[in-house]
């Protein structure tokens, strides 16, 4: 999270380095959250402080997005009523062996 900023953030970034092994070693040394990348790029999910530490070590960063630290979009979460209805719908008509 960013000290002093009003909204805590993470950045999705690519670490740009001449030498991939050196970049990987740096990401490992700093204990960063490395995201899988099937093209072999070094993608990370980092706080502003982690971004600063990377920059201090002389690497360039390509920032793809700034992601506010925020709860999951509530439209993606089932309500209790929806969850119950979905389960009952799936099990409708199956004779129950046990209690209600």
């Amino acid at each position: 999270m960013s000290p002093g900023s009003s909204t805590p953030l993470r950045f999705h970034a690519t670490v740009l380095v001449d030498s991939r092994p050196k970049g990987l070693a740096l990401v490992s040394e700093l204990g960063l959250d490395r995201l899988p990348d099937d093209k072999g790029m070094i993608q990370v999910l980092i706080t502003p402080d982690e971004a600063r530490r990377l920059l201090d070590r002389g690497v360039q960063l390509q920032l793809h997005s700034a992601l506010p630290v925020a709860p999951l979009d509530e439209r993606l979460i089932l309500t209790d009523k929806q969850a119950k209805q979905a389960l009952e719908k799936r099990l409708k008509g199956v004779p129950r062996q046990g209690g209600e």
């Binding site: 999951l72 439209r75 993606l76 979460i77 089932l78 209790d80 929806q82 969850a83 119950k84 389960l87 099990l91 199956v94 129950r96 062996q97 046990g98 209690g99 209600e100």
Partner: peptide
């Protein structure tokens, strides 16, 4: 399609085990 909360997952487990104890 949406995501279940933790309590909804727990609830689904409990309901399945309660309604169909011969299986769950």
């Amino acid at each position: 399609m949406m995501y279940r909360t933790v309590s909804q997952i727990e609830s689904a487990i409990s309901i399945l085990a309660s309604w169909f104890p011969n299986f769950f």
